[in-house]
Every structure is written in C-alpha cells, then in structure tokens.
C-alpha cells in the first residue's frame, strides 16, 4: 500500500490539490495529513473541507500548532503568522473550527507513528531539527517509522547503530529503503509553504510493501496561491514567501 504523507498545508488549496493528484497518480490509496492545515494561506476553509472529506473516507489527520491557534490561546505566533490566524478565525465556519478541535495529537498504526512536530511531547510542538531531537522523537514514538512535519524541510533521520541518529537529505523521486529493524524519523516537508528556496510543494509516500519512502516535489501554480494571499489582504511577506519558497 502507498500512503501519502502531507504536512503543513497552510491553507494553500492549490498546492494541496496538486499533491493529492500527484499522490493518486503514483498509486497512493491511503492519506495522512500531518497537521497545520491552516495558517499563512488564503483558503483555510477550502483546505479543511477537502481534508474533512478524506478523513470521512478513512484518512488520518493530526493537529498542528496553527490548527490549535484557531481555538486555543496559548500558542505563540509572530505577527505575520498571527494576522493569518486572525483572518482564518474570521472566515472559518463553526463546523470547520470543530473539525480542527477534534483532531488527535498523535496516531500510531502498525509500524508507523504520525505526529505534527515530535512524538516526544507532541503538545509542545518542538522542532525535530537535530539528530538529538530526532532521537528523542524516535524514542517516544517507540515504532520504527515516525512521520512528522513542522520544520518545512524534507529530511530523513535514521539510527545506524544504537539510538544515535544521523541526518540524511533525501533526493526527490528516489525510493529509499527504510527497513523496520531500524528507527526512522521522516520529515515530509511542507505542502503549502516550502522553505528551501524551492516553491514546489513537498510531501512523501510511504510504501508498506517495499518498505521504502519516496520524498516528492510537485510544481503547482504558486503564483496563483500568492495572488490569493494578496487578494484577501494578508501580509505581502506571506505571499512573497510562497512565491519564492522561503
């Protein structure tokens, strides 16, 4: 089975649709959304509606810090991010906010653990941005395959010997074997706001039969996504980031 792993969609419905189309073309039959459905982008409602439909059909979705910020007050955000949260609060319908409230923090299934930030205290939304952080995440996950988002870059951490982890920068489109006798922490990148100077949407596919992960990059109309951000009156800096992939 091919499981599509999509994270940090950030209300970018153009990028989400392109990634879903790409994943289905590549044979994905199961979908996991790793959080941050909203924030930054112009279409939080559109994104929630698409994902709610997938969840109704059996997909998994977990909660991200931007999702929690819609209804919780304890999440810290910078001004730019906060303006998008306030915008989303204004445009989202109560049912859409309830959908976000009902998202689980972490889901474990077979060999896989799905979480937005780190399996080590998921509610703290700490970044898996170092081998040490990946080691804590894999330790708390207690499963061979942990899939996260939150850092907006594609990385694969692995334990070569003992619990100590090593970072690997994956090449898009290459299936990397991830045998279950090792611990792996895959950061699948961001669908709606990539930050590696490449505006292409990022996601990953986990193949449960080959036991491999393929990191994917999908070109989409990022200018249209940026235009929507300007159109609804969100800060220019957000539009610029989506256009330039930063």
């Amino acid at each position: 089975m091919q499981i599509a792993l999509l994270s940090d969609i950030h209300a970018n419905v153009q990028a989400l649709q392109s990634c879903l189309d790409d994943a289905r073309t590549k044979g994905a039959t199961r979908f996991v959304f790793l959080g941050d459905l909203v924030g930054y982008g112009a279409d939080p409602g559109g994104v929630i509606d698409v994902i709610a439909q997938y969840v109704a059909e059996g997909a998994i979705a977990v909660r991200g810090n931007h999702d929690e910020a819609i209804y919780g007050s304890s999440i810290y955000m910078n001004d730019m991010a906060m303006s998008a949260i306030n915008y989303a609060k204004r445009v989202l319908a109560p049912a859409q906010i309830t959908f976000l409230q009902n998202l689980p923090m972490i889901v474990r299934e077979d060999t896989c653990c799905f979480v937005h930030a780190s399996a080590a205290s998921p509610e703290k939304y700490s970044y898996v941005d170092s081998p040490t952080a990946a080691e804590r995440c894999a330790g708390a996950s207690e499963l061979p395959h942990t899939f996260c988002g939150h850092v907006h870059e594609q990385r694969l951490y692995f334990a070569a010997r003992g619990p100590r982890m090593t970072v690997f920068r994956p090449t898009p489109g290459v299936a990397v074997p991830v045998p279950a006798h090792r611990r792996w922490v895959a950061l699948v990148g961001s669908v709606g706001q990539p930050r590696d100077h490449n505006p292409k949407a990022a996601y990953a596919i986990f193949d449960t039969e080959q036991v491999s992960i393929t990191f994917c990059r999908v070109p989409y109309d990022h200018h249209a996504a940026a235009a929507r951000i300007r159109e609804v009156g969100l800060p220019e800096s957000i539009a610029y980031r989506v256009e330039s992939g930063i």
Binding site: A160, R164, T166, F168, T171
Partner: peptide, 11 residues
Amino acid sequence: HAHFPDFLAEE
C-alpha cells in the same frame, strides 16, 4: 550512494 542514507557515516 548519494541517494541513500550512509550507515557508516557516523562510525
């Protein structure tokens, strides 16, 4: 192999 994790990198 540049496309695969290097298990010996941290030895």
